[in-house]
């Protein structure tokens, strides 16, 4: 049974100021089952990240369908109500980007705890699990209580990964999750992705270091330049 069936999904950006339509990708189709990892491939600028963002609805798809079988019923991610997308983001679909948005006065460990607190976990349990994640990704315990705005790119990305992967999800969208990581963190991430896959989590990814996850990949979708 497919978790996600994408049919002829397309995205074109209309930029009114210059009166132009800029295509990102056209007519992408694929299917994804629970526990599968699908990789989006293609040269820089062919719309791999845009595809992930369209599925998360940060970008609005221009045409096509993305039928997602949620725990509460079936919806088309391309045209589902905003409240339904908001609910899925809180409970079923996660997006792992390369960039952390630190907030003043929120510590590294608190940022990682937030998705668990939002899901109703108590603060002691959330803190323990957040610490476990940060430890495994190799972030020094001495900086967990510090504010990440001054951290290095690699450290920020570890926090971002922990934050994105800590709450249970049925579908994960991975946008270059290992781009800026050191070898220890890359190995830890690989191990986590393998465990999530074994638990039945479906994933769609764009990878900078595809060799890290090579043997986890079930399928690929190749995007070609358009326009």
């Amino acid at each position: 049974m497919n978790l996600l069936t994408v049919h002829d999904l397309s995205k074109t950006f209309t930029i009114h100021a210059i009166g132009r339509a800029v295509p990102a990708f056209t007519n992408v189709s694929f299917q994804l089952r629970p526990g599968e990892l699908l990789v989006a491939r293609g040269q820089n600028g062919v719309g791999k990240s845009s595809l992930l963002r369209c599925l998360y609805r940060t970008y609005l798809p221009s045409a096509g369908h993305a039928i997602y079988r949620s725990a509460h019923g079936e919806v088309d991610l391309a045209r589902a109500a905003e409240v339904d997308i908001a609910l899925l983001r809180k409970t079923e679909i996660g997006y792992v980007s390369q960039f952390l948005r630190p907030r003043p006065r929120v510590s590294a460990i608190e940022l990682v705890m937030e998705p668990l607190l939002a899901a109703g976990a108590d603060s002691g349990e959330a803190r323990a699990r957040a610490g476990d994640w940060l430890g495994r990704l190799g972030l020094k315990e001495s900086i967990w209580p510090a504010y990440p705005s001054t951290f290095s790119g690699g450290e920020q990305q570890k926090i971002n990964l922990a934050r994105a992967l800590i709450a249970p999800r049925r579908l994960l969208l991975l946008d270059e999750p290992n781009a800026a990581l050191d070898p220890v963190a890359r190995a830890a991430l690989r191990e986590r992705l393998a465990a999530l896959k074994a638990e039945g989590v479906a994933m769609i990814g764009v990878f900078h270091h595809i060799e890290d996850v090579h043997d986890l990949v079930d399928n690929e979708v190749v995007l070609n330049a358009v326009g």
Partner: peptide, 15 residues
């Protein structure tokens, strides 16, 4: 220039 805001499906998952 007027553009109608895009319409979406009614809520299906949120009760």
């Amino acid at each position: 220039m007027t553009l109608e805001p895009r319409t979406f499906d009614p809520p299906r998952l949120s009760d």
